[in-house]
Write a protein that binds this DNA or RNA. Structure first.
Lengths: 205, 205
DNA sequence: CAAAAGATAAACCGTTCAGTTCAGTTTCGG
DNA sequence: CCGAAACTGAACTGAACGGTTTATCTTTTG
């Protein structure tokens, strides 16, 4: 069936192991995670893990790949970009902000940043199934609105990146550095509106 | 002299130790750093380190505090914000972008994000002597320009945060996730100009 | 049912590493 | 120049952890 050179052999409890590994890696990061704990959480023996996967690093890669796919799928499913700019941008900003304020978004970002020096592939994979997806979708939408003369944009890629970045203002860094971990709806709303307003002030007609 | 409950005893080679520890922690992060290596790099014996500091965690905190002070001092020294908005913002954006693209800025951010869950104090300390300093200086400048009627800003704190965030567009995330580690002057310039233009489109008169 | 394949628990190995100990050397104020 | 305090280096301890092995049990399937 699957005679990869990567040497990942599947088995009855493969998914069960991955799910346990996902939980533990997400909670503790790569170094912090302990294989015995993964085995415990996954309710799978350590020997089984090592019969599926040659080492901890590859297990981590496997989890990360799966996670990236999930993330990308979810992102695509939820992006329904059509209609007037202000409403659509507001909607898009809401999604993005809620995502990176979520436990999952936070942990994903933390791991990507922390481990990308040790595992460059990980960083790239996360980037390509997170920011890239958002940017691509946004770029496509902007191109559409430009041809409708609703927007005027010289550098469309930069504009998309700016919008994404505007959505982080005041929130993202504070959260990632543990200065503040909870935000009220009002605080979030302020940032979302601010992002849309600033973006449209520059690129709206 | 110094009978802190934190139990940091100074001595002849205290600074020498801190300098070595700084190098190693910056290069390898908290977990990755090895006390024997710190001793080697600092040219100080491990026993001396443990006579100054009760454990690795406190040593890390000490280094981080020092680093934050340095960073803050440097930031304040270099912020000479006066004059017309477009020029000053361009200058400020240049400084910020070069900072977080620098080796030092990159490592600092990585450590702050990676360790702030384990050591909340670290994250806050970094935040208060990095982003906060920039935001405060920027806020003061904006307030000045608002009273000159050169800018119109409803939410001045948000505006400052937006400007900072705009400076990261297209660069920061790519860099932190290892997608791209070097940028040409042209690429950097594009982002800086974009940040200033977008900011002024929204808040300029 | 019987054999093969898969899974398990637990002990085990080798290494890494924070932190300790101590006998000996260097430094420096008085 | 003496003696106390600071520093050294090297060996040691104990715990954590990645990975292996083995003997045994369970599930699948022909």
């Amino acid at each position: 069936m699957n005679a990869q050179p990567g040497a990942i052999k599947k088995g009855r409890k493969f998914d069960q192991m991955l799910e346990g590994a996902r939980k533990v890696f997400m909670a503790d990061g790569f170094e912090g995670a302990n294989v015995d704990e993964i085995a415990r959480v996954a309710k799978v023996s350590k020997a089984t893990i090592y019969s599926y996967v040659p080492d901890k690093r590859l297990l981590f890669m496997e989890v990360a790949k799966l996670e990236c796919r999930r993330q990308a799928d979810a992102a695509i499913a939820r992006m329904q970009l059509a209609g007037p700019a202000s409403a659509v941008l507001f909607e898009a900003a809401s999604h993005m902000v809620r995502f990176f304020l979520s436990d999952f978004g936070r942990q994903t970002y933390r791991i990507a940043v922390a481990e990308s020096e040790r595992f460059p592939e990980i960083g790239r994979a996360f980037y390509n199934s997170g920011p890239t997806i958002a940017r691509t979708a946004l770029t496509a939408y902007l191109a559409d609105r430009i041809s409708n003369n609703e927007l005027v944009v010289d550098d469309i890629e930069l504009a998309a990146d700016q919008f994404i970045e505007l959505c982080k203002a005041s929130l993202h860094t504070k959260m990632m550095m543990g200065v503040k971990t909870e935000f009220t709806d009002a605080e979030v709303d302020r940032v979302i509106r601010g992002a849309v307003d600033t973006f449209l002030a520059r690129y709206g007609t």
